[in-house]
Write a protein that binds this DNA or RNA. Structure first.
Lengths: 225, 225
DNA sequence: ACGCTATTTATACACTTGCACAACAAGCTC
DNA sequence: GAGCTTGTTGTGCAAGTGTATAAATAGCGT
């Protein structure tokens, strides 16, 4: 049986065809391929060859864009964190909404797809497990965490102000820490055991718990039409 | 310069000295060495040779106690989870304590050393990052999580019963989910940024938030003498 | 004191890994 | 279209990986 896949068997240097992509495009593709590899097989499975295969290039090219594997992983983590916090904050920009509605929307957004997602959780856990040993990863995390918490603190301040309450800085900080913990904890439960919860259940629990934490009368039913 | 480190250079088969340990002892040592390796350098750094070096044996021995690396890692994770839930539950066995005191003690125990610990967190995150891809790890986690949540639910039921309140199963479940999330979330914050909180602060926040969630009057100050 | 056996070491092997470097060609500039 | 830059490929290498297996010895039963 002749080999139909190679019609010209003689003198085949047959180097692989390729296209030159813009630098930014290539870097993003490589970072995305890195995140996919890490999510599927962990840091162990994220070899340069596996990443390159996924990105549709050969392994050597990676060294042309990144000094080494470590830097690629760090940039990938930074990109992941950036996307996560960006999505979370996007839920806060609502015109013509009361602070309380914005807080509820924020919680709901954080406790549903696409933020509740096993792939993202897998990535988050894998990277953060190395944060205590890798100062660069630790720094990236710290930035994202503080940004998130400050965002929470700002909304909480608005909500309480709308209720004619004026908490001091310490109380505000405690509220933000607690609310952050509630969202994080429910997010983890949802990512790890999503099928144990009915749709929207986690968001409902989150809103109720946060309202209790802030001492707000639970008027959740009134908002439903 | 003569080699002072080898006083008998001729005929030195010089096989390494060793002691035979009991099976259980060796297995535990290997598991501990595995956890240490994973905590320090992640799953990538946990090579059989690194683990064996830490355990004071040679790499080949591992295959005498475990079918392969994967099984060793699974048993290590199971051992870790077992230890964590055991420590957590230990805080619940208190004689002559009101349900509410037991709940507070449970929260306090979970939000202080040794449960708040960067090494344990690093291990937890590393393993759980692989749980969505490895059914065995996922099962180990699920067991531990449900055990923990049921424990929480039981204490909550006692606390509410002592308050002459009789929640239905759904309310109880929601309380348990929320409280579990609060503890998990604060645990993560403490592990990742312990120096941002004063001693006992997380436990205080946790207790206050949980009491608000359960609708209990905050009599925390009264318990302080 | 002497085997016996199971624990332990040591070595070998096939394979993967990250990185270095030379060869090549895609596509812009003139 | 010729020439040049540089993005991209392919190959090579030393180090490290998990696993297999043979050789050695520690420590028990007798």
């Amino acid at each position: 049986m002749p080999d139909a896949a190679d019609p010209a068997p003689m003198n085949t240097p047959s180097r692989r065809r390729f296209r030159r992509e813009g630098e930014e495009r290539r870097r993003q593709d490589l970072i995305e391929a890195t995140l996919d590899s890490v999510a599927e097989h962990g840091l162990q499975g994220a070899s340069l060859r596996a990443i390159a295969l996924r990105a549709g290039v050969t392994a050597g090219l990676i060294r042309h864009y990144f000094p080494g594997k470590e830097e690629l992983l760090q940039e990938a983590y930074a990109a992941l964190m950036g996307r996560m916090t960006e999505q979370a904050k996007a839920a806060l920009v609502m015109e013509d909404a009361s602070p309380r509605q914005r807080l509820a929307a924020f919680v709901t957004a954080n406790l549903n797809v696409p933020i509740i997602d096993t792939r993202v959780f897998s990535l988050w856990a894998t990277f953060i497990g190395r944060a205590s040993a890798d100062p660069t990863l630790a720094h990236v995390h710290r930035e994202g965490y503080l940004g998130f918490r400050n965002e929470v603190e700002a909304v909480v301040a608005e909500v309480l102000a709308a209720e004619r309450r004026s908490p001091d800085a310490s109380q505000l900080r405690h509220h933000a820490i607690a609310i952050n913990a509630i969202i994080d904890g429910l997010w983890i439960e949802g990512c790890l055991a999503g099928e144990m919860f009915s749709p929207g259940e986690l968001a409902t629990i989150g809103i109720r718990t946060i309202e209790a934490e802030l001492g707000l009368a639970p008027l959740a039913q009134l908002q439903e039409k």
